[in-house]
């Protein structure tokens, strides 16, 4: 799966039918579209007519058409085409397979482990700090995009190993379900997050092209833990099921709500658009927060 920035693509075929989707800017499909378009203006009678496929609905469907049927390609933002590169033939067609948007694992830890992680979170309340978002300029405390508190120290605790070792055992089924290669996945980062009254995280992708480190994220996991009965409402993880898109303001994209259930882990591909719905915690007590152990894996 490409980590390159996504561009919105609209193609128009003979007869006037148009289709919209999103593709990584380095996608061979995008190159094929431009190559076919260029070839149609200077037809080579010896060149083969190629079958092209354009992914729709996040890869769950595809529009197939002959290269000669392509009338125009609109991209947002504009994509630079190298005029020095002759369009001799279409690049290989890439057909996206259909994979799950996310995987849910209930009872991820044993009940005693689950209780002890919550105790660890409560004991370390003083070490939680305000969360931020990563931009090209570095870490930013942008409270219009995200509000929560984070404990980075879990990375050096025994819980780091507990989570990653348990997760590693699950990769044999998580990775194929998400279209990832289990054998190449290695741990990257882990953190403990507390979300209390009014906290949220607006739609985003975890592998945004903001720095070399973040762009390497391939698999995201979120483990929920909280007191029982649950002392807050809201806080659902909203997983966007449309094709990964860097424009999270697209409200037309369908989402699946994954409620925060104690001792449940959710895993998804890091370039999946997702958000955290607003948490409502009437007590405002730290111990009543929606806690998550969240982290990432990357390819070795």
């Amino acid at each position: 799966m490409s980590d390159a920035a996504l561009v919105e693509v609209e193609i128009t075929l003979t007869g006037g039918r148009s289709f919209q989707g999103a593709l990584p800017c380095d996608s061979p499909i995008l190159a094929s579209l431009f190559t076919s378009l260029a070839a149609s203006h200077d037809p080579d009678p010896n060149a083969p007519v190629t079958l092209l496929q354009f992914p729709l609905e996040g890869g769950n469907a595809a529009c197939s058409f002959m290269s000669t049927s392509l009338v125009s390609v609109v991209t947002r933002p504009p994509v630079l085409i190298n005029p020095q590169q002759p369009a001799t033939h279409a690049l290989p067609v890439e057909t996206p397979a259909s994979f799950a948007s996310h995987v849910v694992i209930e009872d991820f830890l044993t009940p005693d482990e689950n209780r002890q992680v919550l105790e660890y979170a409560l004991e370390n309340e003083a070490h939680f700090e305000g969360s931020g978002v990563l931009t090209h300029e570095g870490q930013s405390k942008d409270e219009t995009s995200r509000r929560s508190r984070v404990l980075f120290a879990i990375h050096g605790s025994k819980w780091n190993d507990v989570f990653l070792q348990r997760l590693k055992l699950h990769l044999s089924h998580i990775a194929p379900a998400l279209g990832l290669d289990a054998m190449r996945l290695v741990p990257k980062e882990i953190q403990l997050t507390a979300s209390n009254d009014g906290d949220f995280f607006k739609a985003h992708v975890d592998s945004g092209n903001v720095n070399d480190d973040v762009v390497k994220r391939v698999l995201t996991f979120v483990y929920y833990l909280h007191k029982t009965p649950r002392p807050f409402s809201g806080g659902d993880l909203l997983v966007y099921t449309g094709y990964p898109n860097t424009d999270p303001s697209q409200q037309s994209m369908a989402t699946i709500a994954v409620p925060p259930r104690n001792n449940t882990l959710v895993a998804f591909v890091s370039n999946t658009t997702h958000e955290v719905d607003v948490v409502r915690c009437p007590s405002g007590e730290f111990g009543d927060s929606r806690f998550t152990v969240n982290g990432w894996m990357q390819y070795a």
Binding site: L169, H170, H173, P176, A177
Partner: peptide, 10 residues
């Protein structure tokens, strides 16, 4: 255990 786990989840 490995085979059962893979079957049960997959």
């Amino acid at each position: 255990p490995a085979s059962l786990m893979e079957w049960a989840f997959r």
